[in-house]
Design a protein around this nucleic acid. Structure first.
Length: 154
DNA sequence: GCCAACGTTGGC
DNA sequence: GCCAACGTTGGC
């Protein structure tokens, strides 16, 4: 059984259109520097898991597409790149601190805005809607996944 | 730009 | 191991 996830990305960094125009419509989910989010990718994500692609820190935050996990977790190259803002001097090639998966676009959707999500009782328990939530990757329950997909098609 | 929430760091 | 200080996230 696949699991489901919501993954936040700042559109200035990697937008749904960036994903749509990437080779194979696949992108490495680089730049995660939070242990809980890393652990989700490293320990719990499987190829084929469903992903809600979410735009954050922008004028209209919300879900903008459906994607799929398309690789196992592997070391994030940006942690070794001194010129990258994601460079981590404490990480080593022998024991890389940061890992990520690749994701592949399944479908660009309409914007399901955060505001609209908050209005929906069937989504009320989603972690991303919890006050103060800052986690960039959160698990999504199967019934929440189905409810979001239904809303995206309205 | 503000600020609440919360994760990380580092002194002790 | 505690916890204050600090930094980051991200909606508004």
């Amino acid at each position: 059984m696949p699991q489901y996830w919501l993954m936040k990305s700042e559109p200035d960094e990697a937008s749904i259109d960036d994903l749509a125009h990437a080779p194979g419509q696949r992108l490495p989910w680089t730049g995660v520097r939070n242990y809980q989010a890393r652990n989700f990718m490293r320990d719990r994500m499987k190829v084929g898991d469903g992903v809600l692609f979410y735009h954050s820190s922008c004028a209209e935050p919300g879900v903008v597409g459906i994607a799929e996990v398309c690789s196992a977790a592997y070391p994030d190259a940006t942690q070794f790149d001194r010129k990258s803002k994601y460079f981590d001097s404490k990480s080593t090639r022998d024991a890389p601190r940061w890992m990520h998966v690749d994701v592949q676009l399944k479908e660009k959707t309409r914007l399901l805005s955060l505001r609209e999500m908050r209005e929906r009782p069937e989504l009320a328990d989603m972690i991303v809607l919890r006050p103060g939530n800052r986690l960039s990757i959160t698990p999504v329950e199967p019934d929440q996944w189905r409810a979001v997909l239904a809303l995206l098609r309205t």
